[in-house]
């Protein structure tokens, strides 16, 4: 399908462009036609594809789990309930292992993070051209189907988690306790500007590293899928080789998407555990 584009560069660019809705330079509202135009729209624009896919996947997750929850029996579980219970027991044991305080919110939060991130990552396994091509048939110019390759999505989650960390840090240790944790260690008190700088950077690094790790992994994975897809335009031999490569990378990617979802969840739990801990 790369033949529809003037160059491979254009093909790649097109695949990496979100469907952005915002205000054009001339004051009208609409879909941005290209990366420059999307950037020019500033902050008050929205990536319609990211929002739609992430909300759709989140709703799918909640719908499935809610269905299992409503029908949850204490008898022998079957089918969906079995799967849901398996996931929940896995999350529960992970939370019990890493989170040593009492907070009814952490386990459901971890479950949501894991399942949502996993489902968003899983969109990466759909061949890169299917959905964008179908969309272009329907008149939609851009479509990026993997929401976790959009930094807005990963930062939206990691910043929410960061605010939870701040909230629980202040709630558990008090504002003074939280400040002293940042200012009076690891060096003696008179060096508190150094401490504050070090700990402050460490604190800020949490949400940024959390979001960038997921984004980077998924973006790179998506990029490789796109590069492999480029081979389909290079003759039969290259296309066949590309097919093998795509299959191999998809198999490997199953590991990556699960691992990234698990890492995101585990770090969320660990950060919240640190926020609850009385001593550093």
């Amino acid at each position: 399908m790369a033949s529809e584009y003037h160059s491979s560069g254009e093909y790649i660019k097109h695949h990496l462009q979100n469907l952005t809705y915002g205000q054009h330079a001339d004051g009208t509202w609409g879909i941005a036609s290209g990366a420059e135009e999307a950037a020019a729209m500033g902050f008050w624009a929205i990536n319609v594809d990211s929002m739609l896919f992430s909300i759709g996947l989140g709703v799918l997750f909640l719908f499935l789990f809610r269905m299992a929850a409503k029908k949850a029996t204490t008898g022998v579980p079957a089918g969906l309930q079995n799967f849901v219970e398996w996931v929940i027991e896995f999350i529960d044991s992970t939370v019990r292992g890493s989170f040593s305080h009492r907070n009814a919110m952490v386990a459901p939060l971890a479950l949501t993070v894991f399942m949502w991130v996993f489902l968003m990552n899983m969109m990466d396994l759909i061949p890169v051209d299917w959905l964008p091509y179908a969309a272009s048939m329907a008149g939609v110019p851009y479509l990026k189907v993997v929401p976790s390759t959009d930094p807005n999505v990963t930062f939206g989650m990691s910043l929410s988690i960061f605010f939870l960390v701040l909230y629980y840090s202040v709630k558990m240790k008090g504002a003074g306790g939280f400040f002293s944790e940042l200012a009076f260690q690891p060096f003696p008190k008179f060096l508190f500007p150094v401490n504050l700088l070090l700990e402050g950077v460490g604190l800020i690094a949490k949400p940024i590293s959390l979001a960038l790790r997921l984004f980077g992994n998924m973006y790179a994975g998506e990029m490789i899928f796109i590069l492999i897809a480029l081979m389909y335009g290079g003759g039969w031999i290259l296309a066949a080789f590309g097919g093998v490569l795509q299959w191999a990378w998809a198999v490997f990617h199953i590991l990556i998407i699960t691992l990234q979802a698990f890492i995101f969840m585990t770090l969320t739990i660990v950060y919240l555990d640190m926020a609850h801990a009385e001593h550093h």
């Binding site: 979100n18 952005t20 915002g22 999307a38 950037a39 729209m41 500033g42 902050f43 008050w44 624009a45 929205i46 990536n47 990211s50 929002m51 992430s54 959009d150 930094p151 807005n152 999505v153 930062f155 939206g156 989650m157 910043l159 929410s160």
Partner: peptide
Amino acid sequence: NFNATLIGQS
């Protein structure tokens, strides 16, 4: 590029 999607996602 960051935009309101960030808020929507949160």
